[in-house]
Write a protein that binds this DNA or RNA. Structure first.
Lengths: 222, 222
DNA sequence: CGGAACAATTTGCAAATAGCAATTTGCAAA
DNA sequence: TTTGCAAATTGCTATTTGCAAATTGTTCCG
């Protein structure tokens, strides 16, 4: 028989990212409780073993309850676990990162999320700065090989918007013709008929696109 | 004040992989305790909050104690967390994958590890089959963009051995000249002078290489 | 009604890569 | 010497990128 060890605290923390003024931003929330009560931190909370079927369920519950958001793209980042990351004791944070289009945040549904530049979120409690860093690296690394960047846009978007999103995710500018060629070759997008974007000034009308399928990875670089 | 929720069980599980007869193999160990006592399962165990500084420390302790192995390459895979994966209750498994060269296993240091084909490890307890699957995908995905494949070889190896390892990791054959060119371009290897490999039959002597640095990622495909 | 403005899209190559196949090289057994 | 064999290199073609210049589709202006 195993001796019993003290069970760690288990929380879920979400690096919710969006784009603000052409740059990645993280959403923070002031903490309701001690420790660090009132301090902006990642959106997160205890796993509720009685109501959460699994960690993803906890993420959905927390995003809904604390940020008023549903249906977002999210995926597990990794876990951060150790004795010293939380003053309450040995703890595990199962970290997720989630993406939300700015348009969804501007709608009044959300709570008062603080948006901070992802590259400089300020001083954060626990090891949240490290978690944000890991999320940025993940997004950057995955950006070039998947369509997750599109999760930062509304369902329908223009090719330029998509390219711009990839550029802010990757942190580098991309060649326009190469980008379009590749997108065409990969055959991940489909044109959306009908509704054209209203333009203030006269210019050639944009064709609108949407992802053919849920976010997916491919093996050549964008 | 938060209500207290029952704390989940937290374990660490390690998908220890090696190469056997040109194919990836997972190392399993018969479980010492209930549940599933005596059944082969991933190498793992409870996090010991009193002695483990963090999850990596638990991994090192467990690899040492249960498999007699030290100094291996390992990295976190992801966590598997939920109510139904373990009959003891809501649980979190922080899963790691580790690589070991076959040469280290043949040495008598290790305990009696069962080596099963990674692609068909047989029926495993808990959600260990899923964890193995995730590890295979991770290794495969990362194989083409990093030098981790070299962790399945001794410190010094030939170009052919390295290519062979990449091939079993990636599950595809690679062009020899392209492989060597790329390896040369990436400048990750350095030649090892002196000791040439003994050959049974006469053939051109191989130059031996070793990694210049710890396993690292690069951004173009092998 | 013929520009003018301007982003959206295409085209056209040159440069860099990747994929294949054939050739050359070094060593020791026969 | 000759021969066998894998190591290592070359050559060449087919793709993929990277850049820059050229078209297009619209509406506003004069």
């Amino acid at each position: 028989m195993q001796p019993e060890y003290e069970r760690p605290i288990v929380t879920v923390d979400i690096v919710l990212m969006t784009i603000v003024e052409g740059a990645l931003a993280v959403a923070l929330l002031e903490r309701d409780n001690a420790p660090f009560q009132g301090v902006p931190a990642l959106i997160g909370g205890y796993v509720h073993t009685d109501e959460d079927e699994d960690a993803e369920a906890a993420v959905r519950r927390i995003l809904k309850a604390k940020a008023g958001l549903e249906g977002l793209f999210f995926e597990q980042l990794r876990s951060f676990a150790g004795r010293d990351r939380d003053p309450r004791g040995w703890s595990v944070s199962i970290a997720y990162f989630a993406l939300v289009p700015p348009s969804l945040l501007s709608g009044g549904t959300g709570k008062t999320l603080l948006l901070r530049p992802a590259s400089a979120p300020g001083e954060l409690p626990f090891d949240h700065e490290r978690i944000v860093l890991a999320a940025r690296e993940r997004l950057r690394g995955k950006g070039a090989y998947s369509t997750i960047a599109a999760c930062l846009l509304p369902k329908v978007f223009t090719m330029s918007e998509l390219q711009g999103t990839y550029e802010t995710v990757l942190g580098e500018t991309l060649d326009q013709s190469a980008f379009r060629r590749k997108m065409k070759d990969l055959d991940l997008l489909e044109e959306v008929e009908g509704e054209k974007r209203q333009t203030l000034i006269a210019r050639r009308p944009t064709t609108l696109y949407r992802l053919k399928a849920a976010p997916s990875v491919f093996d050549r670089r964008i």
